[in-house]
Computed example of a mutant assay.
Amino acid sequence: MTRGAALALPAMLADVEELMSCESFSADHATVARSAEVVGALGTITPGARLEVLVGAGRPPMEPGSSADLFALASRVAAGLGQPPLRGTAVGASDGNYTAATGCPTLDGLGVVGGGAHADIEYVEVARMIPRARLLAELITRTVR
């Protein structure tokens, strides 16, 4: 955000109806209800502002065991190519949540290696692009046989 935008922020907020959105990725209704309760208890600090918590259907959770066999295969492929071990957990959501919910083994996060996703500091590790492409090519080759 530029300095000028920071100074104009209070005026901009006067017309904002939705400033923040967050999702809870859990199939456990008690967990979702508790999350809504905790967020709702935060309250506001801006005079005249209000906090409204809406609970509804969002992306289905990607259950950790739903793709365990495919992850094991990808890990073996990475090791066979002399690549660093794959990480098995991540936060956030993707369209992969939908395919996993149908029972289709799904791996998410096999794109470029980097960090700072969706932020001004986002980057890719260029030196790891070709090794990642090799991993994907070998994984695809082994899964279509």
Rank of each mutant, 00 (worst) to 15 (best):
F71T: 11
S67K: 07
E18V: 10
P10M: 07
M12W: 10
E125Q: 08
I130R: 03
V77N: 13
V113T: 08
G56E: 06
L81I: 06
D28R: 04
I140M: 12
A8S: 08
V126A: 13
V16C: 14
D69M: 03
A14T: 14
S66H: 06
I130H: 02
G43A: 02
E23V: 14
P10N: 05
P64W: 03
S24F: 04
S66D: 14
V112H: 11
A93N: 01
E52D: 12
Y98E: 05
I140Q: 01
T143P: 04
Y123H: 13
V124T: 07
A117M: 12
S94P: 00
A119W: 02
A78P: 12
L9M: 15
P60N: 10
V126Y: 11
A93D: 06
A11R: 09
E52H: 10
A57G: 06
E122Q: 13
R87I: 13
M129V: 14
V32L: 05
L81C: 02
G43V: 09
T46C: 02
E122R: 14
Y98L: 15
L42D: 02
G56C: 05
V38L: 15
L86F: 01
R3E: 04
A30P: 10
C104M: 09
R134M: 04
T143E: 12
A100K: 02
G48M: 00
P64G: 06
V124S: 09
C104L: 15
Y123F: 13
M62I: 06
T44K: 09
G103Q: 03
L13V: 03
T2H: 04
S94C: 12
T106W: 04
M1H: 15
G92V: 05
P10W: 06
I140P: 02
V53P: 05
S66Y: 03
N97F: 12
A49K: 11
E125N: 13
Y98M: 12
S35K: 02
G56W: 02
M129W: 08
L81R: 11
F71L: 15
T89S: 01
L136N: 10
A101F: 01
A78C: 13
S26L: 06
E17L: 09
A36I: 11
R87H: 14
T31K: 08
L73V: 09
V112Q: 12
S21I: 11
T141A: 15
T89N: 01
E17M: 06
G96R: 10
A57T: 13
L107Y: 00
L51E: 09
T143S: 15
R50F: 01
L9I: 07
C22F: 13
A33H: 11
T31P: 00
A93F: 06
A14R: 14
L73N: 02
L19M: 12
E52G: 04
A11N: 10
A27P: 01
I130G: 00
G40W: 08
G88I: 05
V53N: 00
A27V: 07
G103C: 01
V112C: 14
A101L: 00
A30I: 07
C104W: 00
R142W: 02
L135G: 11
V126R: 11
G114F: 02
A41C: 03
G40P: 03
D15I: 01
E122N: 12
A11C: 00
V91W: 14
V113I: 10
R87K: 15
S21C: 15
L110Q: 11
F71P: 06
G58Q: 07
P10V: 02
T102V: 12
V112M: 13
G92E: 13
P64M: 04
E138T: 11
T31V: 14
T2I: 07
V39M: 15
L73F: 05
A79Y: 03
